[in-house]
Write a protein that binds this DNA or RNA. Sequence first.
DNA 1: CTGAAAGCGCTAACAT
DNA 2: ATGTTAGCGCTTTCAG
Lengths: 334, 334
Amino acid sequence: MEVGLREVAALAGVSVGTVSNVVNGRATVAQEYVDRVNDAVMQLGFVRNDAARALRSGTSRTVGMIIPDGNNPFYTSVALGASDAATLNNNIVLVGTSHDEAEREARYVEAFGEQRARGLIIASAGNIHDRLHQFARGGMPSILLDPDVDERFSSVGPDDVLGGRIGVQHLIDTGRRRIGFVGGPMRLRVLTDRLVGANDAISGTNGAVTLEVFETPDRTVLTGRTIGERVLKRPPETRPDALFAMTDLLAIGILQALDAHRVAVPGDISIIGYDDIDFASTTSVPLTSIRQPMEIIGRKAVEMIEAQREGGSKKREHITIEPTLVPRDSTLRP
Amino acid sequence: MEVGLREVAALAGVSVGTVSNVVNGRATVAQEYVDRVNDAVMQLGFVRNDAARALRSGTSRTVGMIIPDGNNPFYTSVALGASDAATLNNNIVLVGTSHDEAEREARYVEAFGEQRARGLIIASAGNIHDRLHQFARGGMPSILLDPDVDERFSSVGPDDVLGGRIGVQHLIDTGRRRIGFVGGPMRLRVLTDRLVGANDAISGTNGAVTLEVFETPDRTVLTGRTIGERVLKRPPETRPDALFAMTDLLAIGILQALDAHRVAVPGDISIIGYDDIDFASTTSVPLTSIRQPMEIIGRKAVEMIEAQREGGSKKREHITIEPTLVPRDSTLRP
DNA sequence: CTGAAAGCGCTAACAT
DNA sequence: ATGTTAGCGCTTTCAG
């Protein structure tokens, strides 16, 4: 049989209201009663029933988060930041992973909606904005991690234009003049944004700096290696003297190819990656990278959820957080 | 104002009981009513209140999972398997990440307990078995991913003895005779188990095979590189002709060191890693690795939870799943 | 096959 | 400061 407030109250010889107050650390209950109640709680192994609590109070303690890929450090770091922020209000973050399956994702959206989660942080696999909107109508704040703005929802994300600018500016500052931009497919908003930033940096420079785009079908290590090989087929004087890879994975592949051919990094060609994954610091030549402000994004998302709850789901915001350069040997060593 | 069964019933012109039946796809409700109810649901944007459902029915749809590290492919793959299994019963898996903080972990244990989760799958950061036991007393099945057996809980995990045996056997089968076992700290149960397996394989061989343990303080790429350098300091004829690394990270570090010194892999020294992370297939020489049956572990864990729920929390089980060898060039290429 | 009504365990308002 | 009590929205008998 389930132990409830009632059983605790009976054992402690007080009323359920008092037990509730003690359990929730509320009001000023006489110390004697507090002790008696706590004893009874221990003795009976009482665990508060959150369903009843949520039903009655109309408020949940969980912030829902849905991500496409559990192994992507970007999302897990966002989750960490979100968890930190949620803890401040005594809430928790629960994560569902869609594994890029629309159906699984929909199940999570539904589940969090039914749980009346405080809000939803979602990096969508497909376009579920409409479905999401259905729940948003019910008052659940939803924050998108998507770069594509949907006016119905708020969003937080990295400033990709700035990221592109920072990367190229660093290459220019370290004396590079023929820069290769490696990434794709170029229909991705993140990438076009970074390209804009890259061109911004070049426009702001006096010297003749060229930017060449190496478009790739994906952003994996293997593809990076292919790009590296392709670059090495060209005569040295027509090669780029710097490669700006849109993921660290690409950068690692490029580095492998250059290593295999004994091309010096950064002596002959310098390399920048993007994301600053753990591996970036442990490659044969440690990789300069652009670090995305992931924890901050997560923290911000939770703050926006709470703000929307208070403000009665008022205005939508679209916030962008600044990435930073993490310089390492792949651009700096002589 | 919140839309409930009542509002839907009013609009559809039926009773709440009927709406409940339709929403849950239960019983045989007249088609006409089904349609009218569904229309009303759409029109009002009704979302079932899970708190009320859970409270009344006394049963939740969520399986809780607590992991120490969101970036560890081991755990995320276990989560995937668990999610697959849960889906079969129309349940979902929600993951909390403790980031190796006991406090965060405790919060999640508590939250899942209060939510009356169907059960808990937990890879513990510290020893929270006692706290866990408190909730288990309340009937919530808890499955440990820990290798250390606690008789109060069931557990599922990889068979590490077998993993160690498979790896060394493969090296012996491919003609190696001086095997290095790289990993540490050796107080970890996983590692001592694997070492037992490694020795098993050697005992079962006629030829004179030696096993040398290279103990490491951790299992990172950098440490792997250090070990690689150390091995290379020895004259070639006294070096191991094969290195069995306890993580792919270690193996990658070793490979980097050998690459840098132009030592042929697997020609001079062959390498096996452990875990078969994504990176294993994309190293300069693709890495042979031991793949842990992570999805299966997750699936099994969920099955055990459901079994315990039905069997009234009867007996505890301790199940072990067989890892497999993933052969690649680092041991096979001539 | 559908409608009416009793609670699930808790919180919060009110009474004492 | 503590006790009493009315629901929160739903599921689930039990009647009709």
